[in-house]
Simulated scan of single mutants.
Amino acid sequence: MNAKSKRQKQESDSPLDALRIERTDLNQDELAMRCGIPRATYQRWISGKTEARLTVSQFKKLCHELKIERVNELPEHFGPTAK
């Protein structure tokens, strides 16, 4: 199974993780590492257990990795959306 077909099968209730899947070929660990975010912290954000509090550096790196050019492209919350 190649990376693209593997990525197509992934889904997430988290808007942040959905952006990761849609816009990158990175897994959660790779994205967190590139952004200077501990993996456990990233997982707490996308699970909705904690609210994200990024440093300016982390924010810039996250936007770069997710190919975000405007702040309004980021979701309001990183955790799962209410159903």
Score class of each variant (00 low, 15 high):
residue 5 S to W: 02
residue 31 L to E: 05
residue 28 Q to I: 09
residue 45 W to K: 10
residue 33 M to W: 04
residue 12 S to R: 09
residue 6 K to P: 00
residue 55 T to N: 05
residue 50 T to C: 00
residue 82 A to D: 08
residue 73 E to F: 05
residue 61 K to H: 08
residue 29 D to V: 07
residue 60 K to S: 05
residue 20 R to S: 00
residue 79 G to N: 10
residue 6 K to F: 00
residue 79 G to E: 11
residue 11 E to I: 12
residue 62 L to S: 07
residue 12 S to Y: 01
residue 76 E to S: 14
residue 66 L to G: 03
residue 50 T to H: 03
residue 56 V to S: 06
residue 22 E to L: 09
residue 50 T to N: 11
residue 57 S to G: 11
residue 56 V to A: 10
residue 50 T to M: 00
residue 54 L to K: 01
residue 71 V to C: 10
residue 39 R to D: 04
residue 20 R to W: 02
residue 52 A to R: 15
residue 15 P to V: 09
residue 19 L to W: 00
residue 49 K to F: 00
residue 34 R to W: 03
residue 56 V to M: 01
residue 26 L to I: 06
residue 34 R to D: 09
residue 9 K to R: 15
residue 70 R to I: 06
residue 81 T to V: 14
residue 11 E to H: 12
residue 7 R to G: 01
residue 80 P to W: 02
residue 39 R to K: 14
residue 18 A to V: 03
residue 72 N to W: 00
residue 25 D to K: 12
residue 15 P to R: 12
residue 30 E to D: 13
residue 49 K to D: 01
residue 62 L to W: 04
residue 32 A to C: 11
residue 44 R to Y: 06
residue 67 K to G: 10
residue 74 L to K: 13
residue 36 G to F: 02
residue 9 K to F: 02
residue 23 R to W: 02
residue 4 K to W: 08
residue 60 K to A: 07
residue 83 K to H: 07
residue 7 R to I: 11
residue 38 P to T: 08
residue 20 R to Y: 00
residue 28 Q to A: 12
residue 6 K to H: 07
residue 74 L to A: 07
residue 83 K to P: 06
residue 83 K to N: 09
residue 18 A to Y: 01
residue 33 M to Q: 12
residue 39 R to C: 03
residue 26 L to E: 14
residue 54 L to Y: 03
residue 23 R to P: 02
residue 30 E to I: 01
residue 34 R to M: 11
residue 18 A to Q: 14
residue 10 Q to T: 08
residue 8 Q to G: 07
residue 78 F to C: 12
residue 67 K to S: 15
residue 72 N to G: 06
residue 25 D to G: 15
residue 70 R to F: 06
residue 1 M to Q: 13
residue 72 N to E: 14
residue 30 E to T: 07
residue 59 F to L: 15
residue 16 L to C: 00
residue 39 R to Q: 13
residue 34 R to F: 02
residue 43 Q to K: 13
residue 81 T to C: 03
residue 68 I to Q: 09
residue 9 K to Q: 14
residue 52 A to G: 06
residue 19 L to N: 04
residue 54 L to A: 00
residue 4 K to R: 15
residue 14 S to M: 07
residue 25 D to E: 15
residue 83 K to F: 01
residue 27 N to V: 05
residue 83 K to E: 14
residue 14 S to T: 05
residue 82 A to N: 13
residue 13 D to F: 05
residue 41 T to W: 00
residue 54 L to W: 01
residue 27 N to I: 05
residue 38 P to H: 13
residue 13 D to R: 13
residue 20 R to H: 02
residue 9 K to M: 11
residue 32 A to V: 04
residue 79 G to V: 04
residue 64 H to L: 14
residue 46 I to E: 05
residue 48 G to H: 02
residue 47 S to W: 00
residue 10 Q to S: 13
residue 76 E to G: 07
residue 68 I to K: 12
residue 50 T to F: 02
residue 63 C to T: 15
residue 56 V to Q: 06
residue 60 K to V: 03
residue 59 F to Y: 15
residue 63 C to P: 07
